[in-house]
Computed example of a mutant assay.
Amino acid sequence: MMKLLNWFKKEKNFLFASIILGTLITGIILQYSKAYSETIQTGIADNVIRFHVIANSDSEEDQELKKEVRDAILNEMSPILSESSSIEVSRELLIENMDKMKAIAEDVVAQWGKNYSVKVTLGPAVFPTKQYGDIVLPTGEYEALRVSIGKGEGKNWWCVMFPPLCFVDVTHGVVPEETKKDLRGVLSEEEYKIVTQARYEEDVPVKVKLKIVEWWQERKYDKKHQLVKKEL
């Protein structure tokens, strides 16, 4: 015991210095990772518009109605948005056609014999990390066109309206390379790697970076209870 106490007395300055240095290094790493998370998520969010359809409830009928509303709006908007080459133009086209999209959704609801109200909005919304085909969007706030049916308490569906990922077949779990080119054209190289991290299965740094972005963003928004939990 005495040997231990003597050793501690001799080495205490070194131990205290090590603790202080370790704390400083940890703090620097945390601050850097937090700044990195904000930069990546903001960079991605500034260049995409998501499409979000929320069902009245989780009943099988309401979920099927949600899908039909989704398909009807996408069929209408696909040729309109296909001419857009920028997020600004896409945003303007969506705003110009919001009444039309609301009317389309209301027609589908009426055809199903329901009296649900329909609300269509374009603005910020917070989403958890979600995969669409082999594209991954990390947790965070994104601009989204949201169509809420009735009470809007059911599982929801989402995709990306700009770049136009909504209009591709991802039933096989892969977004076509041609469509990825559109995404690559609006994101930085680093952001594109994070979003398409499924393509880099052996690239540990990319996966770690995605986890860093997810961790900080979830920490940021979980406190506010803003994450869309019931996503489908």
Rank of each mutant, 00 (worst) to 15 (best):
residue 100 K to L: 10
residue 57 S to D: 06
residue 71 D to G: 10
residue 69 V to C: 08
residue 96 E to D: 15
residue 108 V to T: 03
residue 93 L to E: 05
residue 82 S to F: 01
residue 95 I to G: 03
residue 86 S to F: 02
residue 131 Q to S: 10
residue 52 H to S: 03
residue 72 A to T: 10
residue 78 S to P: 00
residue 78 S to L: 07
residue 108 V to S: 09
residue 79 P to Y: 03
residue 60 E to A: 13
residue 70 R to H: 14
residue 102 K to N: 13
residue 66 K to L: 14
residue 118 V to Y: 09
residue 96 E to H: 12
residue 83 E to G: 11
residue 88 E to S: 14
residue 95 I to H: 11
residue 54 I to F: 00
residue 132 Y to A: 07
residue 119 K to D: 14
residue 74 L to Q: 13
residue 125 A to Q: 15
residue 69 V to Q: 04
residue 54 I to C: 08
residue 97 N to Q: 04
residue 92 E to Q: 13
residue 75 N to F: 13
residue 94 L to Y: 05
residue 119 K to A: 15
residue 115 N to G: 15
residue 62 D to R: 09
residue 91 R to Q: 15
residue 82 S to C: 07
residue 68 E to W: 09
residue 75 N to M: 12
residue 53 V to G: 04
residue 67 K to F: 05
residue 86 S to H: 06
residue 136 V to P: 06
residue 77 M to Y: 06
residue 116 Y to P: 02
residue 125 A to H: 14
residue 54 I to P: 00
residue 64 E to A: 09
residue 118 V to L: 08
residue 60 E to P: 15
residue 76 E to I: 00
residue 95 I to P: 00
residue 108 V to Y: 01
residue 50 R to E: 06
residue 91 R to N: 12
residue 87 I to W: 01
residue 137 L to Q: 07
residue 69 V to N: 02
residue 86 S to N: 07
residue 92 E to T: 14
residue 66 K to P: 11
residue 111 Q to N: 15
residue 63 Q to E: 12
residue 66 K to M: 13
residue 69 V to S: 01
residue 51 F to M: 14
residue 68 E to I: 07
residue 135 I to D: 02
residue 79 P to V: 04
residue 132 Y to T: 13
